[in-house]
Design a protein around this nucleic acid. Sequence first.
DNA 1: GTTAGTTTGTGAACTTATTCACAAGCACCA
DNA 2: TGGTGCTTGTGAATAAGTTCACAAACTAAC
Lengths: 190, 190
Amino acid sequence: MKRIAESTVRRLSLYLSFLEGTEREGLQTISSDELAKLGGTTSAQVRKDLSLFGSFGKRGLGYSVPELSDKLREILGLGKEWHVCIIGAGKIGAALARYRGFAERGFNVTAVYDSDEAKIGKRWENLTVRPISELERDAGKQHFDIAVLATPGESTAAVVKQVVRAGIKAILNFAPVQLAVPTDVTVRNV
Amino acid sequence: MKRIAESTVRRLSLYLSFLEGTEREGLQTISSDELAKLGGTTSAQVRKDLSLFGSFGKRGLGYSVPELSDKLREILGLGKEWHVCIIGAGKIGAALARYRGFAERGFNVTAVYDSDEAKIGKRWENLTVRPISELERDAGKQHFDIAVLATPGESTAAVVKQVVRAGIKAILNFAPVQLAVPTDVTVRNV
DNA sequence: GTTAGTTTGTGAACTTATTCACAAGCACCA
DNA sequence: TGGTGCTTGTGAATAAGTTCACAAACTAAC
């Protein structure tokens, strides 16, 4: 499957929010042109964006609102449950673990790691902070879809190596440094 | 002056934050390559971005950190004071008026407007909510660089007309609708 | 069933953004 | 002064993203 541009993804999630509004109004179908007007783009753009993933519309009629919503949620990975580990039990890590919006979008934090002896063993909500040295072993037992890096800049490079070795393929990076990873690992900086 | 891409602006402000870090470390010069590594891009990209605004570097040597920082701040419009009015004295408007980061970046909120009789006349920090009908007249007396729209979706279209008529050339739009404006007015949706 | 009126899906054209590649400028040294 | 090693600035080449334009598919009306 080919790479999808970030701008496309942004638009798709915009379309989804419009569809949810349309759905509430009880409309059953919507045309690419209506969707384009709502999103401040063109109908050709809308159709191109959607056509990257398949043909969801009916010619002469438009798109079925509930059907397209479902497709978009699937494409955007909403509705799916993700297993996430947070690495770095400092302030940012704590804030993320508490953040409700995270769980609402299907991101389940199932483990927290740190390298600092003082933090290891502490209880966090319903989790216990574990030593980062155990990450690789743990990942053999439970699958992590995403690792969230909430480490201070200096220690990040070492941490990334361990995350990669643990076979985790997606990293959400809150550290203020650029990460070097193999090409099969995806990084998103925030 | 030609149009600058949004992605370029994002990178420039990223460069600036790296330069500020470098400045704190006491380094005097930096090369496009070092800047690129920090920002996760390429040296050619860095040079191209900067060359859109002039030649700030010295061949064989790199860029002077303090000098380039200053140039970037100037390009990004930081350091300049902006006169801003908020339109819509509801929850979002109130949050924005209180938000400190706004003032820190040189955005001075100098007036608040609403169309709701119940809200007009209320005091807000050191401002009084004024009727939107007075916007055009007020704009003749004091200059507004930016209008921040924090109105509910339905009333936004009417408000935009008044903003345009008042001669305000930049709109920061928090309303969940697409704005139609003349080409000499810039809109940024958030 | 035929016609008129829509709207999709998609190659092709076009536009914008990024990367390449190299001459030109500068510092330093002998 | 001339040579060496770096690094910028920038046209040209490439890649990525957007818009155009139209055949094909569908509905509805007669």
